[in-house]
Structures are given as C-alpha cells and as structure tokens.
C-alpha cells in the first residue's frame, strides 16, 4: 500500500485538490440557493410557494448522475462548452441545494409560528423577521441534518469521476487500473475522503454545541 502512495501521490494530490475545490464551491452556493428556495416554500405568496416546491421535488428526486450528464453532454450541444469539472460542480450544487432547501424548510417550520406573528406585529417586514428572528433559530435546529447533507455533498462529488472531473474517485479508478491493486487503491481513496469529511463533521458537532 505504501508503494502505491509513493508512486501515485501526484494523482492522489490532484484528486484531493479537485474534490476539495468542487465541495467548497458547491457547499457555498447550495447553502445560499437552498435557503432561498426554503423561504420560497413557506412564503405567503402562492406562486412563490409553488416555484419553491417544484424546484425541490424535481431536483432531489432525480439521480445526481443524470443532472450532471445533462450539463456535460446536452448543454455543450446547444449553449456553451463546459468541462467535466464545471458540469459536475453545477450538477452537485443544484442537487444538494434541493436537499438543503427541504432541511431548512423543516427547520423554519419547527420554529414556533407565534414568533413570526410577533415579529410582524412589531413592525418588521417578512424578510426582516426571517433574517433576524426565524432563520437563526431554524439553523440551530437543522445543524445536525445539515451536517449530514454536507457530508453527503463531499462524497457525492465523486460524480465528477463520471464526467472526467479529475476528482479523488477518478484518480482512484486510474490508480486501480494502473497498478491492478484494486482494494488497496480504493482503501487509500477512502482514507483521503475521511481526511476531508471527518474535520467537517467535527466542526458541525462543535457548532452544534456552541449554539445550543
């Protein structure tokens, strides 16, 4: 196993870098987009509610691979050329944002509804009371399930392997084929995923304790 690391480390490093980069970008944007659609889903305006609902149900119910493939092979035909890494990151962002929207929505709804009324009657607008009263409380509740989603996101970034996005799983496949030592190669890849996700889940734990 040490031999594989010694000879293949440039591939592993490239893989680690692309996985981290893709995860960070997708995490940032899916959190924003997800929260936005979560708010849409509970807005008083019916049209907005429907838009939010349709977005969430469509994107969380079809496979990530299909969304990613759409960006990789269909968009270049009709719109613009995008590479595998970009296609994968966009696909991952959209897919995860639907899950985050659902998580945040349930968090908002579990905050007592009296609070919104109180905030509104105190002269705050809908958006103001969302931002200052409801969302901070909601996020506290949803941190553990959000943590699950973030970890899912990092691991789902392995979809890049299907569109040649040079991520960890892609490099793992290459190494397994170069060396024909399948099990040790994937074992190393697994450890590298742990290197990314373990700190993430410990940070979420820490956040949870701090806010409690």
């Amino acid at each position: 196993m040490a031999h594989i690391v010694a000879t293949q480390w440039p591939l592993l490093l490239t893989g680690l870098w692309h996985t981290i980069l893709c995860s960070v970008i997708a995490l940032f944007f899916s959190l924003i987009i997800g929260s936005l659609f979560a708010i849409f889903e509970i807005m008083p305006n019916r049209v907005m509610r429907i838009i939010g609902h349709v977005y969430v149900e469509i994107f969380r119910n079809i496979p990530l691979l299909v969304i990613t493939m759409f960006f990789f092979v269909v968009i270049p035909l009709y719109v613009t050329k995008i590479n595998g890494f970009t296609a994968g990151t966009i696909g991952l962002t959209i897919y995860t944002s639907a899950f985050i929207a659902e998580t945040v929505r349930s968090g908002i709804q579990s905050v007592e509804s009296g609070q919104m009324e109180g905030a509104l009657s105190n002269g705050l607008t809908f958006w103001q009371s969302m931002r200052f009263i409801i969302l901070p409380q909601a996020f506290k509740i949803v941190i553990p399930p959000l943590g699950n989603q973030f970890i899912n996101l990092v691991k789902n970034s392995s979809v890049l392997a299907f569109v040649a996005g040079f991520d960890l799983m892609y490099q793992g496949n290459m190494i397994a084929n170069n060396t024909l030592q399948t099990m040790p190669s994937y074992f190393i890849v697994a450890v590298l995923y742990l290197v990314i996700t373990m700190p993430l889940s410990y940070y979420m734990r820490h956040l949870e304790k701090k806010l409690a």
């Binding site: 699950n148 970890i151 691991k155 392995s158 799983m169 399948t182 099990m183 994937y186 074992f187 890849v189 697994a190 995923y193 742990l194 996700t197 373990m198 889940s201 410990y202």
Partner: peptide
C-alpha cells in the same frame, strides 16, 4: 457512527462484497 457516515458508500459496498 461518525467514521462510517464519513466514508463514501461506494467504498463500503466494495469492501462488503470483496472484504
């Protein structure tokens, strides 16, 4: 719990079948 949920499922499937 933390260890297993942090591993890629693909790899867990792989190890279950071959390990």
């Amino acid at each position: 719990i933390d260890l297993i949920r942090n591993l890629p499922l693909l790899i867990i499937i792989f190890f279950t079948y071959f390990g």
